[in-house]
Amino acid sequence: MMLDPGGLIATGLLATMLVTGAVALLVNDLLVAAALFGVFSFAAAAWFAALGAVDVAFTEACVGGALTTILLVAATFRTTRRLDR
């Protein structure tokens, strides 16, 4: 049983991705941006799972939601979270 790709939940997840992706790129604090990128990746993973790509969803959740976000936060700690420098 699979979700309809054009259905409400799948479209809602895609809209979440669009919103969090855009806000992550525009927010004024890189730490917040990293956290929002985690949300973005998680929505992407949920969407992949909803469309039957369970392996891809698993990988995206591990890699995008956890590892990339951890590395971004860590790099932010070693550089700066501000945008004006």
Partner: peptide, 11 residues
């Protein structure tokens, strides 16, 4: 089941 070397490795 879903999973494999990459996912397990990252975890």
């Amino acid at each position: 089941s879903p999973g494999g070397g990459f996912q397990g490795g990252v975890l």
